[in-house]
Design a protein around this nucleic acid. Sequence first.
DNA 1: GAACTGCAAGAGCGGTGCTCTCTTTTGTGA
DNA 2: TCACAAAAGAGAGCACCGCTCTTGCAGTTC
Lengths: 240, 240
Amino acid sequence: MPDAVTPDDLDHAPMGVRARARTQLLADVSRIARKHLAESGAPGLSVRAIARELGLASSALYRYYPSRDALLTQLIVESYNELGDAVEIAEAACERADVAGRFRASAHAVRNWARSNPNEYSLIYGSPVPGYAAPQHTVDPATRVAAVLSSILADIDLDSLSLRLSRNLPASLQDQLDAMSGPLGGRIDQNVLLLGVTQWAKLFGMVSFELFGTFNTVFDDADALFAASLDLDLTALGVI
Amino acid sequence: MPDAVTPDDLDHAPMGVRARARTQLLADVSRIARKHLAESGAPGLSVRAIARELGLASSALYRYYPSRDALLTQLIVESYNELGDAVEIAEAACERADVAGRFRASAHAVRNWARSNPNEYSLIYGSPVPGYAAPQHTVDPATRVAAVLSSILADIDLDSLSLRLSRNLPASLQDQLDAMSGPLGGRIDQNVLLLGVTQWAKLFGMVSFELFGTFNTVFDDADALFAASLDLDLTALGVI
DNA sequence: GAACTGCAAGAGCGGTGCTCTCTTTTGTGA
DNA sequence: TCACAAAAGAGAGCACCGCTCTTGCAGTTC
């Protein structure tokens, strides 16, 4: 069964037998690890089981990955990137002027990806593994969804908001919002960004409640609830 | 070191030596398990480690708990109940007429409990354990927070809402909302309940983002953000 | 061709959940 | 009072885990 690394990829670079074998094995490990993650979840991911499936001694895998955590890190990065891809593609398919459509498409992309990849979603948005500290290079992939949402918020005027705080924001919060808005595609009004951040948390709260079972027996089919939640968000933003 | 089960408790019932010892040991196991959970998280909870701390053979503990999962179940129930207690107490301390205050108190109780007991929070609101199915008797404790929030929503009039959907809700969603509203302290208007449910998910989304690290480096101090989020909720509900 | 490096295997360490058997302790009914 | 049953603890053992270390072989490079 062919997979991620095609013969084509392997032929291109002028690699020796050894380098080619290494590339192939890394790809195989990654593929099998993803399969196990999808089937058994992160706690069930076992270096020994992967080695077994590859017909290798478990110790051999430590030539490729320094630890199980390193394997987990790779899966985390891949998951963030898959979700990021899904959201970016869904949002990019919308008319630029259709702010509500872009928002809906992004949110549904998150939910759909999470429902299709529950264990991957759990890995990146569920309980943190107690001893595990996410390496620096997981940060960028992790921000992709927030970046898409921010780019949508950037197209919303303060005037359109139908939900806004009457009082001024505390200075500390203003600073945090400004620091956040800078890097993420241009300045965004603080009130818009505040509303957007809380809606961002709400989006993942809704998905987590649905996936982790909190909605069980109450909202067994969360489609309508999710859609209504988005409508509320868009109403608050004043774009529908 | 005395603990959960006091001598008083043990003296009351007319129990033989054996029954008293059993009660005491169950209490000890529970206490040590909670300690390990708080220190190492759910994945670090080990039957053998508990037995070691008690000076028992690990096999002996299986006279008291059929499996590690059963131990975990007890911790889950206790965690739900602790959180339920915290929220109920905080809410009960407010003036009945002060709907906004009751909402804020409940939400802050959730967040404060979660920050004080991150591993317990992760256990009940984080990734579900792949093979684990929550027994029936975990359901009631799990609904206590939602029950408190519902009791607050029940005191809010449809007229006061400043955020409402323009279109009618789909029939399927109306049915689900009605089914939910019935058992939870009296009928609640569907629009109020819908808004409340999404705010419920948002509350836990905010707390999870803060605790699980998604807000890291962006909102290192989430106090102001959380307060502002609640203000937005209360504004939408029209109670401030 | 020699030297060096990368790689695989196997044994082993300490840990896990859980089961089974054996022995001791305790409670109880005749 | 004493025998018997129930309960409890200990220990060995099974299959698994992450990870390390040593040994030997196979490519790579000079």
